[in-house]
Amino acid sequence: MAETLMFNALREATDEEMARDDTVFVLGEDVGHYGGSYKVTKNLHEKYGDLRVLDTPIAENSFCGMAVGAALTGLRPIIEGMNMGFLLLAFNQIANNAGMLRYTSGGNFKIPMVIRGPGGVGRQLGAEHSQRLEAYFHAVPGLKIVACSTAYNAKGLLKAAIRDDNPVLFFEHVLLYNHKEDLPDEEYIVPLDKAEMVRPGKDVTILTYSRMRHHCTQAAKMLEKKGFDPEVIDLISLKPFDMETISASVKKTHRVIIVEECMKTGGIGAELVALISEQLFDELDAPVLRLSSQDIPTPYNGALERLTIIQPGQIVEAVEKMVAMQV
């Protein structure tokens, strides 16, 4: 067991997979000599050379397209979005080419690639640098979408994503790179399509992902003291959802609160609510509640920024209200 920070866990995953398979390579802005904006690729260029850790010009659409081409022809690219938001400039290549090309080619090609990098709100970086693209990309067919939340799952999930034969959007959070955990010495993989039971409970199911998981565990601690027993599930896979784990939980608690950092409209929770009401309507004792970010561009001012996203206190309140509801 070695205590590892999340950015190093991601680095280890990349390093191990590059050593294991020489078709795996990293590309992006400042991934090489600079070591990545959050140091996930630090020193890898020295070990693997500049062609396997490729510093690209600031040309997101073109280098994402290039990665698709490399993937079609047998390589396994890992794109680092210096900030995931920058990949808005590559929306076309990610949606039309990474996402849909296998289908439009009638299965002629597969696209084994990973697109990873930081997103999220919380460092007063302003609207453009505080995005949650998981929601924007959610509708694109052909993409798998995962969000890591701890050093442990970050490492295991990234390894799984690199080995997956499909394009995987892999979301990290700017505020979690220093999350610390003891990691096993032996190799491990975390499956891309399984939700993680963070805290079993019986009163209410809290579905969450990425940084909000930590707000939920904070809230759960406060709720425990007040005598509540919430179940917290980290979705991990945002597309497809692990409906097996979700439905087992709903069948136990009959109440669902979704806590997400994306905006409410067209968010991850919106799709979840729809699925739950389609598949589990009879199990519900209360309407599913979404605690989401405000539908606004993230403001710079610190106090306004805090008001934009969900805080642990709001989760506590919501659980109290929902559990107290007579049915």
Binding site: Q124, L125, G126, H129, P297, Y300, N301
Partner: peptide, 10 residues
Amino acid sequence: CSKGRGGSMH
């Protein structure tokens, strides 16, 4: 000049 919504980059 951006009412505190923008910050350094806006």
